[in-house]
Design a protein around this nucleic acid. Structure first.
Lengths: 140, 140
DNA sequence: GTGCATGCAAATGCTTTGCAATTAG
DNA sequence: CTAATTGCAAAGCATTTGCATGCAC
């Protein structure tokens, strides 16, 4: 799926949900469709405007909320920094954060997922969602 | 260890670290020593003042920072709420949050801990710290 | 045309900080 | 005595919101 395809898919999904596609939203969708890292609202704002879009930060926040409640992006909150965002059209995964560089990596481990569900079940609960963040340092 | 013992242990550790024990700090240490839940700064402020202490919120925050950098308490940041605090003098554990009641429970699973370390090692990293939060709902 | 979306600036909520007054050791 | 600590009010930061104007459909 190309960036254009993805941006178009976003637009279609939003239209279907009764959301109007404004110039600002189209620009943000394009920026998001091209995203391979974990930018925060300010970064997305900067990227949209670098592309000549003219979008206010308030609109960035409003659009991100909308996209999140549509389930199209995920908000990721690491400790002590502004919320970051990632595309939701991927398999579930957890995050590793390099404490020296700030780099965010993704990983998935099925055994951990299963163990979490078991632990919750043993205590009489089911998991609604979970967050597993590993703050790591490169081995020397 | 009683609450008084614990409060005294805190004082001793702080004095040893060259931190002065003021009336305000003593009151907060007492409140913390009696803590079995996961209060935030405002709650701790309220509890200290209910006990007739006369402590400002700024001092609560400053004391919590001090205690955290001394490794005596841990700051716990759940999604979308003010930071909470817990005593550090316990075995490491993770948290389960009941999404309906807000109740916070603790659990520990050695297999999950080991798997995390293995995953990090495979990717060439060592874990500095980690956070695992399960947002759960009671099974009906 | 009509109502949803925008920009702006002000408000919010949590947390930190500058500074003059106070107090622990 | 004197340097650390406090309270207060102001500032900081990320995020949200009220409102008048603008624009998508």
């Amino acid at each position: 799926m190309t960036i254009d395809d993805r941006a178009l898919a976003f637009e279609t999904a939003l239209r279907r949900a009764g959301v109007r596609i404004t110039r600002q939203r189209a620009a943000l969708l394009r920026v998001l469709a091209a995203t391979h890292d974990h930018p925060d609202a300010t970064m997305l704002h900067a990227r949209a405007n670098e592309a000549g879009a003219g979008v206010s930060l308030a609109t960035v926040y409003r659009t991100l909320s909308e996209l999140e409640s549509q389930g199209m992006i995920n908000k990721v909150e690491f400790e002590g920094e502004p919320a970051r965002f990632e595309l939701a059209d991927q398999r579930h995964h957890d995050h590793m954060i390099d404490v020296d560089t700030g780099e965010v990596m993704e990983f998935f481990n099925d055994r951990i997922e299963k163990l979490q569900a078991e632990i919750a079940a043993e205590m009489g609960y089911e998991i609604v969602r979970h967050r597993l963040d590993l703050y790591v340092r490169k081995l020397s």
